[in-house]
Design a protein around this nucleic acid. Sequence first.
DNA 1: TCCTGTGCTACAAATAACGTAGCACGATGC
DNA 2: GCATCGTGCTACGTTATTTGTAGCACAGGA
Lengths: 111, 111
Amino acid sequence: MPKPAATTKQRAVRGSRTGRPIMALLDLLGRRWTLRIVWELRDGPLTSRALRTACDDASPTVMQARLSELREAGLVELVSGDGYRLTPLGRELLESFLPLHRFAERWSRRS
Amino acid sequence: MPKPAATTKQRAVRGSRTGRPIMALLDLLGRRWTLRIVWELRDGPLTSRALRTACDDASPTVMQARLSELREAGLVELVSGDGYRLTPLGRELLESFLPLHRFAERWSRRS
DNA sequence: TCCTGTGCTACAAATAACGTAGCACGATGC
DNA sequence: GCATCGTGCTACGTTATTTGTAGCACAGGA
């Protein structure tokens, strides 16, 4: 089938065509390890290797891919010497789904 | 079909081994279309086909897989006649990341 | 110099998602 | 009756993504 203009492998966030930011965001966060990365950076910067370790030793390939996407999205930045950390915008995002932590507790106790 | 659970490929939510519910939840939500499905069900039940249409015509294969996972997780249920809808727990989850909608607006206006 | 650690990449193999087709069932129409 | 529909759901071959392992160039430190 003809490759529609969707084009490059997975570049431009899926759903961004719709013009609805929430779709682009849900797509970005719906990729493997993305949510986890943001979560693991909640307490401060981590080097790329520390981050991989924290994320159950995810392969460097995806890790770098996700980090590039997150940097492009302005949610994460690379600070020389300290590794990766959330930008102010990224921190806003983290706080936006912080309630998830409490929910996860209730959820894990479901019958 | 005896144990619809353990048989298939990606079964038991990754990270559940850690015992930290948030990891299991982040893993579940970090699969393709999962966040989107929960989002699309926010206004009420949708039939499986309406849901596929709403989700940019995702393939039925993944859609059914995600719906099974979400049902197993107690977040979504199948109501005969109405299709799929969020359970009370699923609705809690939705509300937990409702702030994401507002964040997405700010995020889309980043420089 | 030789280590060590950083960010990052290449490559093949394994896994997950896609797209199309189709099933069984139930409700409706003829 | 028996043809349609629409539902939830699955098979299967193709494509895309993730994984695992190895390795690169660079920057300090001893």
